[in-house]
Amino acid sequence: MLSIQESALTVLELFLIAALGYCVGAVKARGISLGSSAIFLVALVFGHFGVSFPAALQTTGMVLFISSVGISAGPSFVGNLRRHGAAYILLCLFTAVSGSLVCVAVIRLAGVETPLAMGLMTGAYTTSPGFASAKEAFHGSAEAVAMVAAGYGIMYPVGTLCKVLFVQMVPRLLGADMEHERALVRRGAETAEPAEDGGHHRFRLDPLGFFTLAAAIACGILLGGITIPLPGIGSFSLGNSGGPLLVGLLLGHLGHIGPVDVRVEARIVEPVKELGLILFFTGAGTEGGAQLVEIVSQYGAFLLVYGIILVFVPLTLGFALSRRVFRLPMLNGLAAMSGGMTCSPSLAALIQVAGTTDVASTYATTYPIALINMVIVMQILANV
């Protein structure tokens, strides 16, 4: 007779989802695969059948992944910002405006209620601050808030998968030479090495750099928890993803703080990122899967069509703008769109496709801009 303790059962479910996810992710169709992002898809199924995990698990995974990405991209961040900063800001604005216009079209032409359409948009953009801003805009109506949540619940998992597939499909459709594209990203980043300190010896608090990871996460969460009021609009915060990302970038760029060496061994960063993805995808997937079928059956599958349009119109137009107008390298354009639509899973997929974490500095540049944009956009759309 098989007897498993409840805590052990949770661990079993977690790693069973991960194992099945890697199996699904290894399957290729026309050279495209989901990779570790397939864990999210498998978790959706498990979530539908009642499997759930503590919210802290998902948050832990997210901060492990995003802080590790920041640390590894830190050395190239300043050069990337100096070279393409204006283009990234304009791309974020364009992405928010184009999505807003589609959302207004869904409201006006398709007759979808404004709160539901706004929920679809926040799910399509996978933006938690935008979702919170949309709910706040209708705080006086429980029915409207429920519609926002329904739209977000429908589109969050679908929007995530669409963007993961997008960043994998584009290089193949363009027939990209990935070695050439990687060289462009590295050249554009103008990676700077930490300056020497004139012979003074630095010391490390631990040999591998786990102190730096822990400090980046702790300080990042504190930074992300700071709420900045936006008079007449609402409030803004970096949250648990933006905060650790920026602190990780700062530590990765500096390389040391006074006599303390804060570098992290490269052989540690990659496993930590992958573990973070396992935790994040299982938590987010099971959470989304719990209500996905119920919401679709209640509101109709046609909402998915509108939601998918809300994903692909800004993505496609924004990427075309990055290439034709701003002349950004392909990988920088894809990273800018991942950041502009605040999607960490598509960044993870892009890192796998690109074979370099240099793209993360572009994501980090556009991400906080996109967060502010979406908070403001939700307040404007509420009055449409």
Rank of each mutant, 00 (worst) to 15 (best):
H84K: 13
A336W: 01
A192P: 03
M178V: 07
T59W: 09
G255A: 06
P194A: 13
K135H: 04
V296E: 01
A216M: 14
S241N: 07
F280N: 05
P329I: 04
I257V: 15
S361L: 13
I17C: 12
M155P: 06
A43W: 04
A348W: 08
A132T: 13
I380W: 01
L331E: 11
M147P: 00
L120D: 00
G130K: 00
A110Y: 10
S322I: 08
F53E: 05
R323F: 07
L315V: 04
L57I: 15
C23R: 14
L91N: 11
A301Y: 10
Y22E: 13
A214W: 06
L41D: 05
E143D: 14
E274F: 04
V102A: 02
A18I: 13
L328A: 10
A364R: 09
S67D: 04
L347T: 02
L116I: 01
A354R: 09
V293G: 03
E6Q: 15
Q379E: 12
Y88G: 00
L101N: 10
V262D: 04
G283M: 10
A132H: 08
L315K: 12
V97E: 11
E143C: 00
F40S: 02
L331N: 07
N240R: 11
G159T: 11
T357Y: 05
G224A: 05
F326D: 02
Q379R: 15
L230F: 03
P207N: 11
G159W: 09
D197E: 12
L93M: 13
S76T: 13
G50L: 15
G243V: 05
M341L: 15
V384P: 01
L222T: 05
E190R: 15
S52Y: 07
A137H: 01
P229R: 07
L64D: 05
I376M: 12
M62P: 03
S322Y: 13
F203W: 13
C103H: 02
M337F: 09
A137I: 01
S344F: 09
G61Q: 03
R263H: 08
G318D: 07
G119N: 07
A360Q: 03
P115E: 03
S7W: 14
Q291M: 08
A335L: 08
V102R: 01
F326H: 09
E190S: 14
A364F: 12
G288T: 13
L91T: 09
I107H: 01
G130F: 02
